Simulated assay, not measured.
Amino acid sequence: MSKKNRSGIIYSTNPEFEFNDSDDEAETLAPQHQDLRIWLERKGGGKVSTVIKGFVGKNSDLEVLGKLLKNLCGSGGTVKDHEVQIQGDHRDKVITWLISKNYKAKKAGG
């Protein structure tokens, strides 16, 4: 069963109601217009991960960016929920690379 967000609509008494399943993704912004935040999240077992949030654009473009960043860090990770998660603390390396590619990026969180 699909777990798509249907904006709280459960049932409609209108016989002509049709739910619009619009998966319109936002157009990917140019790197200089992206405002990315780099977080360090602590997971269970003392593990940490670098999380890049704030990307505006298509999921496919975020997947490409995530793959480039994982290759840069030589580490595993994933792209989900509109953010890139990389295993380990690679904030400085990620920020340096993103700035060299004209992205606006800075550290966030405690």
Rank of each mutant, 00 (worst) to 15 (best):
K70T: 09
I9R: 07
G66D: 06
L68P: 00
L65V: 06
N20K: 11
P31Y: 02
V51T: 10
W97I: 01
D92P: 00
I10M: 07
F55R: 01
A108Q: 06
S60N: 11
G88F: 12
C73E: 04
I86P: 10
K4G: 05
L69N: 00
N5K: 12
I9Y: 09
G110Q: 04
S22Q: 09
E63Q: 13
G57P: 00
W97M: 10
V51N: 08
G76P: 00
N59W: 10
G66L: 05
Q85M: 14
E25S: 13
K47F: 08
E63M: 13
S75A: 15
V79L: 08
E63L: 15
D21A: 12
K53Q: 11
G109K: 06
S12M: 14
L29W: 02
K70Y: 04
G8D: 06
K104D: 07
S49Q: 15
S49G: 11
P31S: 02
K101E: 12
E41G: 02
S7H: 11
I52M: 14
G74D: 04
K80W: 02
G8V: 06
S100T: 09
P31W: 03
K93G: 03
T78W: 07
D23C: 11
D81M: 04
R42F: 09
K101R: 11
T96H: 08
E18T: 12
V56G: 01
D23K: 09
L29Q: 04
T13G: 09
K67T: 10
S22G: 13
L65H: 03
L69W: 05
L29E: 05
C73D: 06
R42G: 14
P15S: 15
H82S: 05
F55M: 00
R6Y: 10
I99Q: 11
G44C: 03
F19P: 01
S100H: 09
S60I: 13
K53I: 05
W97P: 02
A30V: 01
D61C: 04
W39N: 09
M1D: 10
L62D: 02
A30Y: 00
L65T: 06
Y103D: 02
K3N: 12
N102R: 11
A26S: 13
F17K: 09
E27I: 14
A105H: 03
S7G: 10
P31M: 04
N20C: 08
S60F: 11
R37N: 05
Q85H: 11
W39T: 00
T50N: 11
M1W: 09
D24H: 14
T50R: 07
K107G: 12
K80T: 05
R91I: 15
A26D: 14
E16W: 07
I9L: 14
Y103S: 06
N14M: 12
A105E: 04
G110R: 00
D61V: 02
V84P: 02
R91L: 13
L68S: 08
K67Q: 12
G54D: 04
A30W: 03
K101D: 07
D23R: 05
G109N: 08
Y11D: 08
N5A: 12
L36Y: 03
S60W: 00
D89Y: 13
N14S: 15
G66S: 10
G88Q: 08
I38K: 02
K53F: 04
K101Y: 06
